[in-house]
Design a binder for these strands. Structure first.
Lengths: 231, 231
DNA sequence: ACGATTTCGTTCATTCTGTTCACCCGGAAG
DNA sequence: CTTCCGGGTGAACAGAATGAACGAAATCGT
């Protein structure tokens, strides 16, 4: 469970955020604060993994909380929530290690995507203790900055997507090659591969070569670092 | 021009990084430091956009510099350069707003990719003053996904390459023969050898004969003197 | 010195990948 | 009704990556 602190000056909004968070599997709200002062107190006393941080607070700017966390050497991550559209704010947030940034107003789908993205990022960090190659670091960053899984890119169909994902989940924990997925779904290998590559790009499946027989090795796709996401 | 400060305790490495940076269009080296102390001084006195920060410094840990920058509210960005493979380090770096992370040793191609990625990110922030929609914020974050296109010669696969390298690192400081690497990775001896020879060619592993039993001696490969910025 | 032994280093058939391009289908415009 | 367009799919293809097989090379034991 990822422990979340909700910070927003307006009680109604804070409550909405709390409800949203509880609806996302794997997350639990550990506290709610309406001022920077209260937030800091709660952050010191409780073990918080993620702060849902409204940047517009009555007593202090939200980023000041982020800065204080960094100064203190805390490992707590920050998801910034703001209606401020100044791009300089985005820049400052990035520099302060804010990993996700959500503009108000937002839908539950957008909110869940951000939380899921954070969960995937976190899972990667917890599952491995060391990185062997640069491309593994790149994958962590890709997960972190990756676009939401909400809308599929052009050329991909939601129904086919669900079909491919279902085939892969059914075979778990074994992996499948593109050709095998094609055989199980009735699609062509090319199409299966198209969707599998998309999943790999989104860090939702992992790719590894499958050696053994003669000839070029197959690429094996298996349900990846996270099982979180759309069903 | 993006003004860069190069920080590395080893003068030779620092010089190499300086030369690399100068080779990338749009970037200029504004200073070189060999200690955290010098780095902090230069950061205070000169207008620096990006710090090429080695995390392993004699007087302080590199991330302490990043932390100090954040505490001071500086807008200077950080590209971490380290041979440390602990994933916790990646996490801390991310939390401190480190936007790019490069593992030593690296080639010029990988290095240039990271700088180019940073330049793109920066351009987005400078060109727009406001963001209208969430997806624009997402795009800014997406730009931060550095995908190093470290190009291997034809006939070699990146994933297999990582696998072989990981096996070799795991056995360190002991060396391995081609057949042993094959056994540990699931590949054939021929394939293992192909990649090991590539590594030897790139001076990233050393080859030495292993005598003892009857028959032709085995060739032992061991992680060796690396290119730019070995531990 | 010479055969026995074991690995090396190379060649080449094999199998899968990754990409291109034509097709098909459904909807919008004429 | 026909034509056009644009997204989604798969057949075909060039070639990329692997491993089996084999002669050559290097060491050890006698």
């Amino acid at each position: 469970m990822i422990r979340v602190l909700v910070v927003d000056d307006e009680p109604l909004i804070a409550e909405a955020h709390r409800a949203y968070t509880e609806r996302v599997p794997g997350f639990v709200v550990a506290g709610v604060a309406h001022t920077a002062r209260d937030a800091m107190t709660l952050l010191r006393s409780t073990g918080i993994d993620l702060v849902l941080l409204d940047l517009n607070l009555p007593d202090k700017h939200g980023l000041e909380i982020a800065r204080a966390l960094r100064t203190a050497g805390s490992g707590t991550d920050v998801l910034a929530v703001t209606s401020n559209r100044d791009i300089g704010m985005v820049r400052q947030a990035v520099a302060l290690g804010v990993t996700h940034y959500l503009l108000k107003p937002f839908t539950f789908a957008a909110f869940r995507d951000k939380l899921d993205g954070y969960a995937r990022y976190r899972k990667q960090l917890l599952e491995a203790s060391e990185v062997a190659a640069q491309h593994e670091v790149d994958r962590v960053f890709a997960t972190l900055r990756g676009t939401s899984a909400e809308s599929l890119p052009k050329g991909l169909d939601q129904r086919t997507f669900d079909l491919i994902l279902a085939a892969l989940r059914e075979a778990a924990p074994a992996g499948l090659s593109a050709a095998e997925v094609a055989g199980r779904t009735g699609t062509s290998r090319v199409t299966a591969r198209r969707y599998l590559e998309h999943l790999a790009e989104a860090a939702r499946v992992t790719r590894s070569p499958r050696y053994g027989g003669p000839g070029r090795p197959e690429v094996e796709y298996r349900p990846g670092p996270a099982g979180i996401g759309s069903p």
